[in-house]
Design a protein around this nucleic acid. Sequence first.
DNA 1: GTATGAAATTTCAAGCTTGAAATATCATAT
DNA 2: ATATGATATTTCAAGCTTGAAATTTCATAC
Lengths: 163, 163
Amino acid sequence: MSRAASLREKHDGALDDRGSVRLWLRLLTCTTVIEKRLKRRFADQYGVTLPRFDVMAALDRHPEGMTMGQLSQALLVSNGNVTGVVQVLVRDRYVSLAPSPTDGRSSVARLTQLGRECFAGLAEAHHEWIEAMLAGLDREERGQLHQLLGVLKDSLAAEGGEE
Amino acid sequence: MSRAASLREKHDGALDDRGSVRLWLRLLTCTTVIEKRLKRRFADQYGVTLPRFDVMAALDRHPEGMTMGQLSQALLVSNGNVTGVVQVLVRDRYVSLAPSPTDGRSSVARLTQLGRECFAGLAEAHHEWIEAMLAGLDREERGQLHQLLGVLKDSLAAEGGEE
DNA sequence: GTATGAAATTTCAAGCTTGAAATATCATAT
DNA sequence: ATATGATATTTCAAGCTTGAAATTTCATAC
């Protein structure tokens, strides 16, 4: 069976024939669909939110610990945001928070042993889900897509965020 | 000047050498960066949020009006979400809400004259911003990217959202 | 030593988002 | 006519996100 109805696209059928906007909407739709599936599956199967997974993933790659500011930069979210997410991870014993020995203003977050163990399972599921969602692209297509997104990334860096 | 520092990527430097996850993170980063810039510029220059723009864009392409359910489907967001966004647009006189003549359960949202006028300006700015952000891709690259995202979209449709 | 500005963090209000529960209406079989 | 299930919508609580204000600590010039 598996009719695999084609996905609706945000603002589908736009009269707006301008190619760049269409490209952007397609990019947005793909990302949104993947993100929502990940979110739902993490919630249903592990009782974890995406932001919490993101923090754990960042900490898992930095066993020496990360300050709140480093987390904020790594995850592209605000400082205040990190505060809240880390607080619940600390409450749930997945993350520990210790004052920085070198800078009294900073505290350093680390995964606890429990956090590391839990994260291993999450990362495994995450990888499988992504792999399955990208199954329709062969090796070459993945490489091309990765390369073109690199060009886009550079274009975005060049355009600048009016900073 | 314009140093155009290259953009950081979410979870940058992942040991995680699995290509599909890296591809996903790059896709996510590009989308996130574009979305945040649009959000900030709409807020700063027009005092409008992205969800409100999305609703207005959908209504602009459907002068006959749309029900809440149609808006929800078109924008890939929940019903309850649409309710709130439309309510403030009605409060601000950009959108009118009338009971459906054929179905007592539904009401039909339409852009008001004021809404149409405001949206024209928003759409113009939106298009320019997108165009500028994609300026680093030539015509062929845009076509390839659009095509590959189409393959991804089909892959996502095939994988199914456990529906 | 002290004042001053920079930097790291937290707090807080406002807005978006979802999913579940509640309401209201429709469609249909009897 | 009526009961029943399906549909459209709203309400609501919980969580994420941001930007601005407040707080604490640092670094440096004097």
